[in-house]
Computed example of a mutant assay.
Amino acid sequence: MNVVTEITHPNRYQRCISASKRVRWDIDEDVIRNRRFAREEKFLPDGLSMIDEFKSLSNSEKRLVSQIQGRTYANVFGLVERYINAKILELSQDYWLGDQTALEALIRFSDEELKHQALFRRIDAMIGDVLPKGYRFDIDPDEVAGAVLGKSTWAVLMLTLDIELFTQAHYRQSIDFDAEVSPLFRDVFLYHWKEESQHAILDELELQRHDASICADERDRGVDDFIALIGAVDAILQTQSACDAAYFANVCGRMVDRGEAAAIEAAFLKAYRWQYIHSGAQHPHFGEVLTGMVTEVQMSRIGDMIASLA
Rank of each mutant, 00 (worst) to 15 (best):
S197R: 13
F189I: 01
H199W: 12
R136W: 07
E143S: 11
V148P: 00
S182W: 03
C215W: 06
D211P: 04
I201H: 11
R136T: 15
E206S: 03
A235Y: 05
Q168C: 01
I214N: 06
W154P: 03
E218K: 09
W154T: 04
E164C: 00
R186G: 09
L190S: 10
C215A: 15
H210N: 12
E180K: 13
Y171R: 09
F166W: 11
V188E: 05
A228W: 14
R136P: 08
A232L: 15
F185E: 14
A246V: 09
Q238H: 15
E204Y: 10
H199M: 07
D140M: 04
D225P: 02
D220W: 04
I139Y: 12
S152A: 02
S197F: 08
L157K: 02
L157H: 01
Q208K: 07
D142W: 08
R186F: 08
D224C: 09
I236Y: 13
L229N: 03
S152L: 00
V181I: 09
V233Q: 09
V233S: 10
V144P: 07
I227A: 03
L237A: 12
Q240W: 04
H192T: 14
L161W: 01
A147I: 02
S241V: 10
K194D: 10
K151W: 00
R209Q: 05
L207N: 08
R219Q: 11
A200Y: 07
L207C: 11
D211Q: 14
G150S: 10
R219T: 03
M158V: 01
V144H: 08
L159A: 06
L165V: 00
H210I: 13
L165D: 08
E195L: 00
A216S: 14
A147K: 12
D224Q: 13
I163F: 04
D203K: 05
T160P: 00
E143D: 11
A212N: 02
G146I: 01
